[in-house]
Design a protein around this nucleic acid. Structure first.
Lengths: 159, 159
DNA sequence: TAAGACGCGCAAGGAGCGTGCAAACAGGAT
DNA sequence: ATCCTGTTTGCACGCTCCTTGCGCGTCTTA
């Protein structure tokens, strides 16, 4: 079983905020030596508690003006059809997130696009015509209050 | 104006995949020298094209078993009420993402929780009783097909 | 064509990394 | 209490990597 103690939690919290912290900076934050942080970080990476590091890019600076949530209902719920839909979703880079949900829609997708034309193209020319898809309803994001992938480690008990 | 050329795009794409790449690795991928990659990376950081670096933690490994999308309708649409709601959202760490949307709901939130008790607590004890909130509807994520924050830089023109 | 600005690679000094090692510590059995 | 064993720690050191100064080539503008 994976065990994560209080030092690990400090390291994880810090790296969640800044993924390029050096072991020495980590050492100060965690109250440990740099070598020990290096060792712990390697362990956490090997155990896949840390699954990766990513640069966060500014969608505004790079000209992505539209974010949309797209609710999708499948034509049938056969395993084959789900498989086809998943394959479709996987090869569309504009779709950042995709989930199957409880409630009315089968799937919800979050997509980033350059403009409304991009959204129209995705919805009308890619999703709608696909054999696996029955209906599609999209909502455009008006304002982003918060957008991160940080886990709330705050109250996690060591163990 | 921010200008991003083909080299920058290669660097951004690479760092989006692995935020801890060394300048030398970056140099190989971009076909540039390490020093030049260092300079370009610093420029992209200063210009906020790269807004940060983050470690990606495994929610499974750390015991977060529930992801939910929560649609929220506000009691009134006064500026004051919106402000109150935004402040509430901001101080709840379990809420990773929050957007205001076109369509029926005013806001949609994405929350990560330890278990269903955590979700119940958030919805029934925190969101519902809040003065700014009129109604709440939550959907639980059954399956994650895709979850990233990568921008589709693939077809971006340099300029 | 001359002059300035820009972007490049190279080199070197300095910072950061990770492994070996011995000391400190924790916990169970006697 | 005391010993024994396995784990975790900090330090030292060789090695890699980072970043800045520098000189060169190229492109633009007057």
């Amino acid at each position: 079983m994976i065990s994560v103690d209080a030092f690990d939690l400090k390291i994880l919290t810090a790296l969640q905020d800044d993924g390029r912290l050096t072991n020495q900076e980590l050492a100060e934050l965690a109250g440990l030596s740099a070598s020990q942080c290096s060792r712990r970080r390697m362990r956490l990476e090997e155990e896949k508690v840390i699954s990766g590091y990513h640069a966060d890019l500014s969608s505004e600076a790079l000209g992505f003006g539209v974010i949309a949530f797209i609710q999708v209902g499948l034509a049938t719920h056969s395993p084959d059809n789900s498989k086809r839909f998943r394959a479709l979703v996987n090869r569309i880079d504009e779709i950042q997130e995709a989930y199957s949900l409880t409630g009315d829609a089968d799937y919800v997708l979050k997509a980033v696009l350059r403009d409304l034309k991009g959204l129209s193209n995705l919805v009308n020319d890619v999703l709608m015509p696909h054999q696996s898809v029955a209906h599609v309803r999209s909502s455009i994001v008006l304002d982003r209050l918060k957008e991160s992938a940080k886990l709330p480690l705050r109250d996690l008990k060591a163990g």
